[in-house]
């Protein structure tokens, strides 16, 4: 799953713009990721501050 470090996030919306599944939403000043996420990791790459991370389960 994609994990957001809310302390790092600058809520710029770049991750929302690149998400191919429309799974990310910038709500006011925080980012939400829905279960439509396919863990492609594109949002992780675009984040200017490295606030997003793919965390593999198990």
């Amino acid at each position: 799953m994609i994990v957001i470090n809310r302390h790092k996030c600058g809520h710029c919306g770049a991750c929302v713009g690149v998400c191919p599944e429309n799974a990310i939403d910038l709500v006011d000043a925080w980012v939400e990721i829905s279960d439509k996420c396919i863990e492609c990791g594109i949002c992780v790459k675009v984040c200017p501050v490295g606030a997003l991370e793919i965390q593999h389960e198990g």
């Binding site: 770049a14 713009g17 690149v18 998400c19 191919p20 429309n22 594109i42 790459k45 675009v46």
Partner: peptide, 8 residues
């Protein structure tokens, strides 16, 4: 409207 990584 999805942006490719080469487009942002």
């Amino acid at each position: 409207t999805t942006l490719k990584l080469s487009d942002i």
